Computed example of a mutant assay.
Amino acid sequence: MSRPPTVWLTRASMLLVLLAIMLVSGPARAHEFRPALLRLTELADASGQGGGRFDLRLVAPALSTAGAIGEGDLTPIVPAHCELGQLRLDCGSQGLIGELGVAGLDRHPVDVIVELRFVDGTQVTAVLGPDQPTMTLDGTSDGTSGGADNDGVFADYVALGIEHILLGPDHLLFVFGLVLLVRAAGRNTRTLLWTVTAFTLAHSITLAAATLELVHVPGPPVEAGIALSILLLARELACGQTDETARDSPLLSVNESTKVSASGREALARAENSWSWRYPWVVAFGFGLLHGFGFAGALSEVGLPQGQIPLALLGFNVGVELGQLGVVALLLVLLAGGRALAGAVGLSEKTARLATRAPIWAMGGLAFAWTLDRVLGFWG
């Protein structure tokens, strides 16, 4: 006897959820985005002037999109007349003029924040990447032929913010949960935008506070808390889901006349009385404060350009907001497409509800695995 399509859909959904958990949960860590840092600090000679000698630090992240970054995979590129020793760069009387950058970005595509600090107080900041692994230093007042100015720093950090949100699986999953929550609560797109913006505003506050060293929170508990926030959000979504709940779903719009059982009405009433469903922007703001400490943990490993920290932070947060809004727009398109497809193929209400539950199962499963992994990491 052939099994009904609903049975196959349920089993296929569960299989996809388990597969996603196995593939993602093991290596997943919060904020895998880690730019590299190339910092050169000029050393004063006996007279207190710059003598063409620099302290050089190249700090590489542990991972790139191509995998683990080993020792020596990323190396400094220095002007030909300069001599590079262990943590020292000697450019002699010619000074720091020529090509400066990082080799190996073709194999490990990461961004590189370059910071130059001269004895006379001049500071130059730039961002390099696989498409532009070097910069030209020509001895002008700003240090580069490209003119590293405030506009350039702002644009560079906007790009870093967009990249951060797109490469942060836990942040993306939380934003995905917010979209589902607002839609399930029957709110409009304007409410959704305010909810996402509240999330950005909150993590901007704690990111700035942590970066300026006004507040310090250890990294491991923050990462575990971020995973737990996703798990709690998934729970809120699951509590409002029953086979008979008369609530709009991403794939199905239930007619108001649809018969709802006592258990369905009870689940719906619990959801509607929940703060998460009634005030999603408050939940987004509250958990956003926690996520901001996670962002700060990523940036603290490489630092921000001295003298331009406010501008860099503003650019980074603008980039995060743009990235989030782009993700939200894509999700709305996909959800609308899923609803249209469900209507075109004639899915039953029960089958459609099972399909809408699958993302919540996956979200909760991944969040649980991340929480367990990060808590166990306290003793690792």
Rank of each mutant, 00 (worst) to 15 (best):
G288D: 08
Q324R: 06
E272Y: 09
T242L: 13
G307Y: 03
L290Q: 00
P280W: 00
P250T: 10
D248K: 05
V283K: 05
L313C: 12
S253K: 07
V282G: 13
L289R: 07
V302Y: 01
G286I: 09
G286F: 02
L233M: 15
A208E: 05
N255L: 14
P221I: 07
L237H: 06
F316M: 03
L268R: 13
L331D: 03
A210K: 01
P250L: 12
S257A: 15
K259F: 11
A262C: 01
H216G: 14
G219N: 06
G286V: 10
A267L: 06
G319E: 07
Q324H: 10
V333T: 11
S263V: 12
D243T: 10
G264N: 07
V333S: 10
L314D: 08
T211L: 09
R235W: 13
E266V: 02
T211M: 12
G225L: 11
L304Y: 04
T245W: 00
G240R: 00
P218Q: 01
R247Y: 00
V320C: 12
G286L: 14
F316L: 11
G319R: 01
P310D: 11
G294P: 01
V327F: 13
A210H: 06
A298P: 02
G286K: 03
A284C: 07
E213M: 03
G286S: 15
A312N: 08
W277K: 00
G219C: 00
S257R: 11
A312C: 12
H291A: 08
L290V: 15
V222F: 03
L314Y: 08
E236Q: 15
V254S: 15
G288K: 00
E223I: 05
F293T: 03
L237F: 10
Y279G: 04
Q308L: 14
E272Q: 15
W281G: 09
Q241A: 13
E223Q: 10
L299T: 08
F285H: 04
G225F: 02
S274A: 14
G326F: 08
L322G: 10
V282N: 06
N317K: 05
L252T: 11
S253L: 13
R247P: 05
K259I: 12
E256T: 11
S253V: 13
G323K: 02
S229E: 07
S249G: 14
L214N: 12
P220K: 05
A298C: 04
F285K: 03
